[in-house]
């Protein structure tokens, strides 16, 4: 029998998800070890967000198994799913903050609705989460009055206030400039170590992911075509991994060819 400490916190096996005729996931599998930061890489439209939403119980996979802490999340098992939701948080790409609630109210919301804590304890814990994310001076501001980075931190404060064991990040750096991308990844890595939660991040930012993550997986054509450490990812000679990893070099080669006046070859041919 596997030791609970070494057993992955999240075990995903053979996920399939179709939207009409379009198969987005075609047998995606992943193991997420406890206390680690795992990044799922993939091209835009590869199904990373769908994969994460299946993990977060937002979407129902057509086939496959998801086990959290050794227990399978079955569609009919409301108790196990409720337990999973209590121990897991999800950070949406859009942050999904309640724009009619202040920063403090946003952070307090999951505590108010899912715990039996008193109003005083809820306020204290929410203020503590805001302080940890360096937002304590903005408790009465609405999300619309905050910058993009502050909104991201507010969403993270809301995600960690319930002290989850697993936090899922959906494209946390989408649309950000390189400096902000670094800052967001640094923030995730810092708080992941500080609070000790297990994190799954989906992104297509390779350099940042390789620096910040403990493990990396690559989703391509609905399946995980690579799973390993960042060092293994950097050293891999797999064609798909190389294409994805060396995309910047490929751009350089393409631009050099354009400058030399050579005809462009279609990449996918």
């Amino acid at each position: 029998m596997a030791d609970a400490a070494t057993e992955p916190l999240l075990h995903v096996e053979g996920l399939h998800k179709r939207f009409g005729e379009h198969a987005v996931l075609a047998g995606a599998s992943l193991d997420v070890p406890r206390g680690r930061l795992v990044t799922v890489l993939g091209r835009s439209g590869a199904g990373k967000s769908v994969f994460l939403k299946c993990l977060a119980d937002v979407l129902q996979p057509d086939e496959g198994r998801i086990c959290f802490d050794g227990r399978e999340l079955k569609p009919g098992d409301a108790a196990v799913r409720a337990e999973f939701r209590r121990r897991c948080s999800f950070l949406f790409q859009s942050n999904a903050l309640f724009d009619s609630l202040t920063a403090l109210e946003n952070v307090a919301l999951p505590l108010e609705q899912t715990t039996d804590l008193s109003d005083k304890e809820i306020t204290e814990r929410s203020l503590e989460a805001l302080r940890q994310l360096e937002l304590d001076g903005h408790r009465d501001r609405y999300p619309g009055q905050m910058s993009g980075g502050m909104q991201k931190r507010l969403a993270l404060a809301r995600a960690i206030v319930t002290r989850p064991e697993l936090v899922l990040f959906d494209e946390p750096t989408a649309g950000l400039d390189p400096l902000r991308r670094n800052a967001v990844f640094a923030m995730i890595a810092k708080y992941q170590r500080q609070f000790g939660f297990t994190a799954v991040v989906v992104t297509h930012d390779v350099p940042e992911a390789l620096v910040a993550s403990d493990r990396v997986a690559l989703l391509d054509k609905g399946r995980m075509c690579f799973e390993g450490t960042p060092a293994e990812f950097s050293a891999s000679s797999d064609g798909v991994v190389c294409d994805f990893r060396d995309s910047t070099d490929a751009l350089g080669r393409t631009l050099a060819a354009i400058r030399r006046g050579e005809a462009l070859q279609p990449e996918d041919s």
């Binding site: 977060a56 119980d57 309640f98 899912t114």
Partner: peptide
């Protein structure tokens, strides 16, 4: 925001 509520268990 509605999906976020569901992921919080609300």
């Amino acid at each position: 925001q509605i999906a976020a509520l569901e992921t919080m268990g609300v």
